[in-house]
């Protein structure tokens, strides 16, 4: 049983099990779920949709993983998505012939810059003023939607600029373009946090900020940094959201995304109590969240009960993740050695 102990003690194991169970359900009960065709020169199928549609949540989850590792939380990311989408849409302009008002790179750069500033604002409130993270980011969560509305004049801005489509709808080598954006950001984040001491610092701050400070870690700057980074991730996410539907809707863009992203991080094995974080786990978590949504659509669950179904599945997955619960179940069946 040594191999089992090794495999099941990996943090990524249980999120993968949950994802596999969801996929297995579809394999048996949703016809044609796994069929992949080639259309218009790219891969086409439900699985591709899951990857493509989970991109915005994955990006948010990368930033949130680090925030949650410091025992913080950022519930403003959904609003930052709307701000970023609004800024880029206003700078590109809704010209019917597809002529951008400002060059695309300036529009995108400005949107990301504004998002980083929003993240820095959160970071300042939490690290310098010492506000509780949920309150600090709640402020921007509410105000941010207002800012997004002001940016777009409370109208939905439609874009007709072809080159901008690639970020949310484009494909490279048959795969969604957004996948490559995530891969680059994920690899960079993993390198910076795992190949340097930064990751250890973040975890130290999350476990015990006072001890971390006495150990010579500048906890304030670390906390400030992770919120700014979360804003950065939300900014990129906003660009993809805007490009996916080629429009910016201050009211609805990114609405509720913060909760999906937090769920993704938690399902991925990072505890809300801070400390150890698992970037890859968060990505699997985001895939679980999106697979669940796509399954609801593809299987044809009536909208009246869809939310209840989602809640039940999330509950089961969360229980599956909990070591304590698994020990309890294993104890119940008298197989204690299976417990972790």
């Amino acid at each position: 049983m040594a191999w089992w102990k090794y495999v099941s003690s990996r943090k990524i194991f249980w999120p993968l099990v949950a994802l596999a169970v969801l996929m297995a359900f579809n394999l048996f009960f949703t016809p044609k779920f796994f069929r992949i065709e080639v259309k218009e020169g790219h891969l086409y199928g439900n699985v591709i949709d899951i990857i493509k549609n989970s991109a915005p949540i994955m990006l948010l989850a990368i930033g949130l993983t680090l925030v949650i590792a410091t025992k913080g939380i950022d519930i403003s990311v959904g609003s930052i998505v709307a701000i970023s989408a609004g800024v880029v849409a206003m700078l590109l302009g809704g010209d019917l012939l597809g002529v951008p008002k400002y060059p695309i790179w300036i529009a995108m750069g400005t949107a990301i810059l504004v998002s980083v500033l929003a993240g820095m604002w959160n970071g300042m409130l939490v690290s310098r003023i010492g506000m509780q993270p949920i309150i600090a980011t709640l402020i921007l969560s509410v105000a941010g939607r207002g800012i997004a509305m002001v940016t777009t004049n409370a109208l939905i801005v439609w874009l007709y600029i072809k080159p901008f489509r690639i970020y949310g709808q484009g494909y490279l080598l048959g795969l969604p373009f957004s996948l490559y954006i995530i891969a680059v950001l994920l690899i960079l984040t993993a390198l910076v946090t795992r190949r340097t001491a930064l990751g250890l610092f973040i975890e130290a701050v999350g476990i015990n900020p006072t001890a971390a400070r006495f150990a010579g870690i500048n906890a304030k700057n670390i906390i400030f940094g992770v919120y700014a980074f979360s804003g950065f991730c939300a900014g990129i996410s906003g660009l993809i959201v805007c490009s996916t539907v080629m429009s910016a809707d201050g009211n609805n863009a990114g609405a509720g995304y913060e909760l999906s992203a937090i769920l993704a991080v938690v399902l991925g094995g990072t505890s809300l109590n801070g400390g150890k974080f698992y970037l890859l786990g968060s990505m699997v978590g985001a895939l679980i969240v999106q697979t669940l949504t796509t399954t609801i659509y593809a299987f044809g669950v009536p909208p009246e009960i869809a939310q209840v179904v989602i809640a039940l599945v999330v509950l089961v997955i969360s229980l599956l993740q909990s070591g304590k619960f698994r020990t309890m179940i294993a104890g119940f069946f008298g197989k204690r050695e299976l417990a972790i």
């Binding site: 044609k32 949709d49 549609n53 996916t244 539907v245 863009a253 796509t294 659509y297 869809a306």
Partner: peptide, 23 residues
Amino acid sequence: TRSQTGNFTTSEGKAVMEAFLKA
């Protein structure tokens, strides 16, 4: 053949239609 909520939003409308087209 199929009826699902898109919550009156463009992005959800798109995601639901993607799944409809495959099914």
